[in-house]
Design a binder for these strands. Structure first.
Lengths: 348, 348
DNA sequence: AAGCGATGGACGTTAATTGTCCCAGTACTA
DNA sequence: TAGTACTGGGACAATTAACGTCCATCGCTT
């Protein structure tokens, strides 16, 4: 039932919006009993004329009865409302989550897809699909797009498709090697994205574990300098997020650092930085690339991550406060919103 | 799955139409492989500009890849197409039936609702719903609407709702008493419709079995003459259809007539007339009201009937050739289309 | 190399949507 | 019973979106 809507949304993006609008009107009229057009328009804060169009439509469909004394719901309309109620409740649950997260973390946009990436691979795919579509929408011209690694980003890459608008873009890894397995490395993701879209890409060839001297000498290298310049020019970055300790283990962070992270309460990891619950950076992976100050100046920071287990981590990264757009799934969103409420309680 | 589509059909029929359009385009492109915009427009008979809008949209959604050499479907698009196929088939298998019937019988409009009225009462309700909505759409001003009896028409009456546009109308029974039970008599239906819509009505008080002299004297009666005049003025008639022998039995037609009907191959009954397979009238019930020549002059003859068992009967009435609009269900439509094909075979 | 068919841009025209009043009713109240 | 505060529907200008049409440029094939 839900997936039908997901499918339709691709062909009719404003389907849900229209459905919601008409449902709301119908619902309001049922509750009100007999109500006037202008009153309706006022209550649902839209204009009289638009409300008139909708009412005309709903009347035409036989869902409303409109008399000189006002508008009331018809028997058919009442029946429809009963049938559609569970569906709408389900749907608006998601939009409600979106709004709550958007407002609380002051984001430009939040998209919550139904399901739990921890449980269903399909949900993760949808995360990728939505992530790809959002990325596509925010690319305005030839520009540099910084990406990170991870399985979610790999999924985003999978769902990109060629487009002339993207032809002039350049995908670059946000930071150097972070010890991921090859297929989940930022390098791989960037090249996949470029291949899928027909764009170009640059790779970061940086050894995983880097000593200080090596680091400094690397910064003298021409090709490294060039790609760093690219990254600094990026207007868009799209990245995954993960649980701190899980990522540390996966990236074979040394025992000492891991212990410190654990001790300091590291919760989340994103583009090579580790965050605690308050969104404060505890540690950065020893590699080159995107810096914190670069992120702050980005026009468009897109975070994509889902799964109930990642809820807290995502919240921590959002707390950091430099995200613009979040793409997540229902399970993670619910987790985040619950913690958000708990937080309020503990403060009061 | 089906009910969600049913809901959407009521709440956003316009969006479903665009969904179909976009699906058709996507489908066509998948089949064609690489195809040009103008070729597309020609094949799907729309204009180049409109096709361009749609292609732009689908490209934006990442469902198409458009290059200088033409348009092809993307991986995402192919996936979507697979997912949406059953849904569309469900939705438009019916439209295909509609089109076949409409073209073969040269009708203005055919609506096929999903299901089988023989099996499900819900399907019959939907038949009524659609019938009512079509009736509503075809009423332009204050006018006379002739109706017949039967359970389907009762359902239509149930789903009518008040409307100022209908206030000035007058519902009249198409023909006098036809021996139906009270709640299914045309008289009852006409009065129900009038009450539901806030319109007026006239009744036909005619004894069931009528001798010739009685018939003649009845034609002198003032009130009878008045209502007959009304009927002759009707621009719209909405009627049910039934199986001939079933109707004869239900209406207690005398044994001799029944035998003749059976012998002559009576298949269908509508507004008191009995038809054979070729749509030729075999017999008319001895009562007053709507005549064949009246039907021929009507602007809008709406037939409503469904159920697999009625398929043949409906086909016979359509063969008669004076219907404008048909509302039926999936089971009956399939039955009719199959017979239609059989007919072709036997001719070749 | 030339020709055909492709997309994408440009722009005037047309159609639809929308904002805004007003009018003729209806229901409720004083 | 008279008045008031609503109601839907009609009308119309203004704005906006959609559409038709033409042309430039690009890519592939012959």
């Amino acid at each position: 039932m839900r997936d039908i809507l997901g499918i339709q949304k691709q062909l009719l993006p404003d389907l849900l919006e229209t459905m919601k609008k008409r449902y709301t009107i119908l619902h309001y009229i049922r509750v009100s009993g007999l109500v006037g057009r202008r009153t309706l328009a006022g209550s649902l804060n839209t204009t009289e004329r638009i409300m008139r169009g909708e009412v005309d439509f709903l009347k035409e469909q036989g869902l409303l009865e409109v008399e000189a004394s006002g508008i009331r719901i018809s028997e058919t309309g009442r029946l429809l409302l009963e049938q559609i109620e569970p569906l709408v409740k389900d749907l608006f649950g998601l939009t409600e989550l979106q709004e709550q997260l958007r407002l609380h973390y002051n984001l430009k946009q939040v998209v919550v897809v139904p399901g739990d990436s921890d449980v269903s691979a399909h949900t993760k795919k949808e995360l990728g699909l939505v992530g790809a579509s959002i990325l596509r929408k925010h690319i305005t011209q030839d520009e540099v797009i910084a990406v990170t690694g991870g399985s979610t980003m790999a999924e985003v890459a999978n769902h990109l498709s060629p487009s002339t608008a993207l032809k002039g873009c350049i995908f670059v890894p946000a930071r150097g090697g972070l010890g991921e397995s090859v297929e989940l490395q930022a390098n791989t993701i960037a090249s996949t994205m470029a291949k899928k879209t027909g764009a170009r890409y640059r790779l970061f060839h940086v050894p995983d574990q880097l000593g200080e001297e090596a680091y400094q000498s690397l910064l003298q290298d021409g090709s490294i300098l060039e790609i760093i310049a690219f990254i600094r020019n990026a207007r868009i970055v799209i990245h995954g997020m993960g649980e701190a300790m899980l990522m540390a283990r996966r990236r074979r962070v040394d025992a000492a650092t891991t212990a410190i992270l654990q001790q300091d309460g590291a919760l989340a990891e994103a583009f090579g930085y580790y965050f605690d619950r308050r969104g404060i950076i505890l540690h950065k992976m020893p590699t080159v690339g995107l810096r914190i100050e670069d992120i702050q100046e980005m026009d468009c920071v897109i975070g994509v991550a889902g799964g109930k287990s990642k809820g807290e981590a995502i919240a921590a990264v959002l707390q950091f406060g430099h995200e613009d757009i979040l793409v997540t799934d229902e399970a993670a969103a619910i987790e985040m919103v619950q913690n958000l409420h708990l937080g309020r309680h503990s403060l009061s």
